[in-house]
Write a protein that binds this DNA or RNA. Structure first.
Lengths: 349, 349
DNA sequence: CTGAAAGCGCTTACAG
DNA sequence: CTGAAAGCGCTTACAG
């Protein structure tokens, strides 16, 4: 069959067809076209087939915006992150997008650069776009936008996020046990002088990881030494600077447990800069298991976070919520110790 | 002022207000509300102020979907990538999103996992959502979806993408000169036995980078040796496997120029696995300058791609297009050699 | 099984 | 400066 004349004409116009155009070609009402295209049982199978064929050949694309207005469902989710250019965040997004797409949802992505104002305006724009749910990722933005988040009627789930008191929905890595496991690994190797290289003060995961570290020290009857606690800022340079303080200490630590892999990367450098070797002189353990962790020299022993899975989980949580199912509202996922080459028994126990 | 009674009631319903609700509270027609909120000069300043105040207090959010239907502009862009969880891609996205947001556009993000079918269906869904432009990133999907891309009436710009013949809009790294510069650097260091560790066959950037390598060899009167060309697949394991073949060669190369940093990461490992040192025994140069490149040991000498900038450029290209300005349709950006520690003069020249 | 009608929440000529 | 009306492209009771 060659193109229907009207159809060809319309094609040339290069302007997207509406349901009425299709109806005209098929010689039915646009209601019938709508039904046929949505596989309603209320339409004669032959008519439906004919309509579908026409729609296909004319490459008609139903307008999701018109449909959204009519049904008041956009099948759209909003994701706000500080930056996509963070390997941890990127993997979580990957899990979110896959889960969303699988269930017919599209995702808007916005960067806030960690600026509270921008985060606020992003959420507002998501509200205007009538997203059905919002995922906030690893934001360190504090309570300044707390009210905003509380005011919106769109369900929000926070992933590894800074929390201000209670929050309705969240998925988080279970920091304390993971952190204890990392510390225990070091203790098991024979270390007693173990330092903690944290993040900036006041963030939940830093607090929790630090707490796991202390608990495990206590469990092993190792005295806590305040001078063995230093703080970076979640970046390699931050870790590098902080580890230097540690290395200058008389009776310096033989192992350092780092808040995250980025910090650990900096620690690796800083230790080398101090003329020491990893792991022979000082062992290093990270947290996250970024791709880079296994390509660094020595390959980093670290705690793996199931990043994609966390994204998937959060998305399903919100999607289930939208379809009325209630489930766990604050889920924690387990980390996993990945033993590589950056930690070994201490030379001087 | 305490809340207006009607306003409070509406708030409690927790259902987003419409322009009519605001109109009712303000005692004007919804047309006037619309004008006031869009800063139309056609409305009395005092009335406008009153309306805005009410809108603010009731946290009214205009529906972007209704507006889109009315204006047939969605202020929306679609980005399709193989995967967000690729550091190169993530940085480009970051540039795209920032440029888009700055001009009032939101971006849909979708992963195709490099599967042609998925890429097709993503583009279809973008068409239904009436995105105004589509950015395709670093896709290796071949000509299978060529027709799709040609059929759609939405402007598409390809970034570092596989091309099938001509394409309307694109931004690409200028591979040949960048690749020549990398090769020249190695030659300048005194190397003569320089290998090329490429990507899988048939992709544009591999072809172009390879071509730059050959051109520079020729310019320096160094004979091209086919056995010095091997292929990875753009992943560290691929690079690791490929470099081993090189290292086993009698009269093995003293330097290897890698298609990209991921490949180079693998090469670093493979060279070490062969009992050789980098850079003393063999020099390595990468391409991309991922964050990881500077944290690997030895830090990688590589070609930097201005990733964010490329995203910004592509976005502005498409946005300008939409506002009727014509500009360069196929832009190339320059790479930059970043000298670090993975390349030095050869031990045996 | 099918069509005419109303409605989703906006924008914007048109008339006053 | 303001309002009533039409229209954007769908969906979906309602009537036949």
């Amino acid at each position: 069959m060659t193109g229907h004349p009207l159809l060809v004409t319309l094609n040339e116009v290069r302007q997207s067809l509406s349901i009425k155009d299709v109806a005209r070609i098929a010689n039915v009402s646009h209601s019938t076209v709508s039904r046929a295209l949505r596989d309603s049982p209320l339409v004669n199978p032959e008519t439906a087939a004919r309509i579908k064929k026409i729609a296909l050949e004319s490459s008609y694309r139903a307008s999701a915006v018109a449909r959204s207005l009519a049904t008041s469902k956009t099948h759209t989710l909003g994701v706000v992150v500080a930056t996509v250019a963070d390997p941890f965040i990127a993997e979580v997004i990957s899990g979110i997008e896959a889960a969303a797409r699988q269930r017919g949802y599209s995702v808007f992505l916005a960067n806030s650069d960690g600026v509270a104002d921008r985060e606020t305006s992003v959420v507002e724009s998501f509200e205007e776009r009538r997203v059905e749910g919002i995922l906030v990722l690893a934001s360190r933005v504090g309570s300044s936008y707390r009210t905003l988040l509380e005011k919106t009627s769109i369900p929000i789930v926070l992933i590894n996020n800074y929390k201000f008191g209670d929050c309705a929905y969240s998925v988080d890595i279970d920091n304390v046990p993971a952190s204890r496991e990392a510390t225990r690994h070091l203790i098991g190797l024979g270390h007693r002088r173990i330092a903690y290289l944290g993040d900036r003060f006041g963030f939940n995961s830093d607090t929790e990881r630090f707490s796991g570290y202390r608990q495990e020290l206590a469990a092993a009857d190792i005295a806590f030494r305040p001078e063995f606690v230093v703080h970076g800022d979640g970046t390699p340079p931050g870790g590098e600077a902080a580890v230097q303080q540690l290395m200058q200490l008389p009776g310096r630590p033989t192992a350092v447990f780092c808040y995250d892999d980025m910090t650990a990367l900096g620690a690796l450098r800083g230790i080398r800069a101090a003329g020491l070797r990893v792991p022979e002189d000082v062992s290093v353990v990270g947290f996250d298991d970024l791709l880079i962790a296994s390509y660094v020299e020595p390959a980093l022993t670290t705690i793996r976070q199931p990043k994609e899975h966390m994204g998937t989980l959060a998305t399903e949580m919100i999607l289930n919520l939208l379809s009325g199912e209630k489930g766990e509202a604050n889920v924690k996922v387990a980390g996993e110790l990945i033993v590589r080459k950056s930690a070994c028994p201490p030379a001087v126990p």
